[in-house]
Simulated scan of single mutants.
Amino acid sequence: MTRRARLIAVLAIVIAGGTAVISSTQTWLDVTLNDGAADTLAVPGTAAVPVLAPLGLAALALGLALTITGRVLRYVFGVLAVAIGASLLALTWPVATELPVTAVASTVTEATGLSGTNAVAALVAEITATPWPWVTLVAAALLIAGGAFTLATAHTWRGSGRRYRTDTPAAGAPGTAGSRPHDAIDSWDDLSRGADPTA
């Protein structure tokens, strides 16, 4: 269960972060203008929520780092995952539920040259949402759940293993080759230090 807990937490955070990054490149809103043009403007996630991609990348990096961190950093990263998820949730919810003009303002300004909230609002006839804001809300909830699960189970996770340690303990110290059988990993360590393990 210990190994499974780490895997569940890491997968939840990585999947949530990856989904947010993908969502940032997708169309979130379609805007119809009342200028007589038949075409609609597609508003990507990065325009609707400018920090979407950075937050998604941060979650991805955080999830990958969880695979090798020690106990203290697990708790720190768990808190960060919850904070990033809560930020995504707070920023995405108004876009998904209210379809605000501010979420499409930059795209409309780029297409028409008009700026200012009032000018853009007067030009917008209709805003419709695609499923992507809701997908991002699910990703944010998954990220919060992954962070909370990390905080709840981090104390049960095993250490990252000897291959990530850079210190070389003294011979005979607890947990070193002096207090257990000499194995293949110890032989490689001896070779890397210039010693002949066959001597």
Score class of each variant (00 low, 15 high):
residue 123 L to K: 12
residue 139 A to L: 11
residue 107 T to A: 13
residue 151 L to Y: 12
residue 135 V to G: 01
residue 108 V to D: 00
residue 153 T to M: 08
residue 150 T to R: 08
residue 137 L to D: 11
residue 125 A to H: 12
residue 103 A to S: 11
residue 150 T to M: 12
residue 131 P to W: 15
residue 112 T to R: 03
residue 107 T to S: 14
residue 101 V to N: 08
residue 137 L to S: 10
residue 143 L to F: 09
residue 116 G to N: 03
residue 142 L to E: 01
residue 101 V to K: 04
residue 116 G to A: 10
residue 153 T to R: 14
residue 112 T to I: 09
residue 136 T to A: 08
residue 120 V to F: 09
residue 126 E to S: 14
residue 127 I to D: 04
residue 104 V to Y: 06
residue 121 A to S: 15
residue 111 A to R: 11
residue 143 L to P: 02
residue 116 G to I: 09
residue 134 W to L: 10
residue 100 P to D: 06
residue 130 T to A: 12
residue 101 V to R: 02
residue 126 E to T: 08
residue 151 L to E: 09
residue 102 T to V: 11
residue 129 A to C: 09
residue 109 T to H: 00
residue 148 A to D: 05
residue 124 V to E: 02
residue 101 V to G: 08
residue 136 T to L: 06
residue 127 I to M: 05
residue 143 L to M: 13
residue 138 V to W: 05
residue 133 P to A: 10
residue 143 L to K: 03
residue 129 A to P: 11
residue 145 A to L: 14
residue 111 A to M: 02
residue 147 G to T: 11
residue 146 G to H: 08
residue 118 N to M: 06
residue 103 A to T: 11
residue 127 I to W: 03
residue 120 V to Y: 03
residue 144 I to D: 12
residue 103 A to K: 10
residue 147 G to V: 12
residue 134 W to S: 12
residue 132 W to M: 14
residue 115 S to C: 02
residue 132 W to V: 15
residue 129 A to I: 05
residue 105 A to N: 05
residue 102 T to R: 07
residue 131 P to K: 14
residue 144 I to R: 11
residue 124 V to Q: 07
residue 139 A to S: 14
residue 110 E to A: 14
residue 147 G to E: 07
residue 135 V to T: 13
residue 107 T to H: 01
residue 135 V to I: 14
residue 116 G to Y: 10
residue 107 T to R: 09
residue 113 G to V: 02
residue 110 E to T: 08
residue 130 T to N: 13
residue 153 T to V: 04
residue 112 T to D: 02
residue 154 A to L: 10
residue 111 A to F: 05
residue 144 I to V: 15
residue 102 T to N: 01
residue 137 L to G: 15
residue 123 L to C: 07
residue 110 E to Q: 04
residue 118 N to F: 07
residue 101 V to F: 06
residue 133 P to F: 09
residue 152 A to I: 04
residue 119 A to N: 07
residue 128 T to K: 15
residue 145 A to Q: 04
residue 134 W to Q: 06
residue 113 G to Q: 04
residue 140 A to G: 08
residue 118 N to Q: 12
residue 133 P to N: 12
residue 132 W to L: 11
residue 135 V to Y: 03
residue 147 G to F: 13
residue 121 A to Y: 06
residue 127 I to K: 09
residue 116 G to M: 05
residue 131 P to Q: 14
residue 113 G to T: 03
residue 152 A to F: 11
residue 133 P to I: 12
residue 123 L to Q: 14
residue 140 A to Q: 05
residue 132 W to P: 05
residue 101 V to C: 02
residue 138 V to H: 03
residue 127 I to Q: 10
residue 111 A to P: 01
residue 130 T to S: 15
residue 148 A to L: 13
residue 123 L to P: 03
residue 133 P to E: 08
residue 112 T to Q: 01
residue 110 E to I: 00
residue 151 L to C: 12
residue 149 F to L: 15
residue 122 A to H: 09
residue 124 V to H: 04
residue 154 A to K: 10
residue 126 E to H: 13
residue 150 T to V: 13
residue 114 L to N: 00
